[in-house]
């Protein structure tokens, strides 16, 4: 019996879809059976990030309303046999689905998969309610900005009212050089404000954008630091204990000397 994890954030543009795609891919790399569900009806993106947009025939709303079986709407990933995507409808809007239908679809998927990753739309309205209704666990994505953290805080408050396990936190786009100067929030500030468990953090990496453009999740690329971050998150979801990686990256000789002398690197 699988577990359904909703990836949510409140604020738009912090990387919910990227995180969903990459956690899904990283879990598939570990050989787990994964189903990605895009609930952003009307503004679907997950298929594009996964490079599967050409293969969509049926979608979530078709499956929920019984125009097709749930299995018919699933798209098998190009790279993995154990990774499937249930795409959102593009021609409808969020009101085309209700929480009851969503719950039913997720229940139908659970026996066939180890994890069902639900990509939640931005906002706290109907789309959010749909996405959360089917989930057992929640992952809150935020970036180290005041506004993103504020919205994440709101979402954590709302999630606490649901019958879910305590939400976990992913901090996306962590920048090393800026946080040193106190110009943005640092990871500790974010964690202490939200007061929930940190599942992982992803360093800001241009490779993520390039990979999304190609329709290939960054988690596939073993040389990127963002990819390692996602793979670590996947391992933590599977119950391994993996230490947080340093956001500083590899330091050059001079940077090391400077930090030894107490100067800002």
């Amino acid at each position: 019996m699988g577990e359904a994890i909703v990836i949510t954030s409140g604020k738009g543009g912090v990387g919910k879809t990227t995180t969903s795609a990459n956690i899904g891919t990283a879990l598939a790399l570990q050989g787990k059976n994964i189903c990605l569900v895009d609930t952003d009806i009307g503004l679907r993106n997950l298929d594009v990030v996964m490079g599967l947009e050409n293969r969509i025939i049926y979608d979530l709303v078709d499956a929920a309303e019984g125009r097709c079986r749930v299995q018919q709407a699933l798209i098998k990933d190009k790279r993995f046999d154990c990774l499937h995507l249930l795409p959102a409808a593009q021609t409808k809007d969020k009101s085309a689905l209700n929480p009851e239908q969503m719950k039913q679809v997720v229940e139908e998927l659970k026996p066939d998969y180890d994890y069902i990753i639900i990509d939640c739309p931005a906002g706290i309205e109907q789309g959010y309610k749909n996405a959360v209704s089917g989930a057992d666990q929640a992952v809150v994505v935020t970036t180290p900005d005041t506004s993103a953290v504020r919205d994440a805080d709101r979402i954590v408050g709302l999630l606490e009212q649901e019958e879910l396990a305590a939400p976990k936190l992913v901090i996306n786009r962590v920048r090393s050089h800026l946080s040193n100067y106190g110009d943005t929030l640092d990871v500790d500030d974010v964690v202490s404000t939200l007061a929930i468990d940190l599942l992982g953090m992803i360093v800001d990496d241009e490779e993520v954008l390039k990979a999304a453009h190609k329709g290939e999740p960054i988690a596939m690329n073993p040389n990127s630091r963002a990819s390692i971050g996602y793979r670590n998150i996947a391992r933590r979801i599977l119950g391994e204990s993996v230490p947080l990686m340093s956001i500083e990256g590899k330091k050059g000789f001079f940077a090391k000397m400077k930090s030894m002398l107490g100067l800002k690197a």
Partner: peptide, 25 residues
């Protein structure tokens, strides 16, 4: 509890909060 963004806790009399009040709460 932690009073998070968007939450309002209101009582008559005095209140003792064991937790934080986050920005927006």
């Amino acid at each position: 509890q932690i009073i998070r963004s968007g939450q309002v806790v209101s009582v008559r009399g005095d209140i003792l909060l064991l937790g934080d009040v986050n920005p927006g709460g």
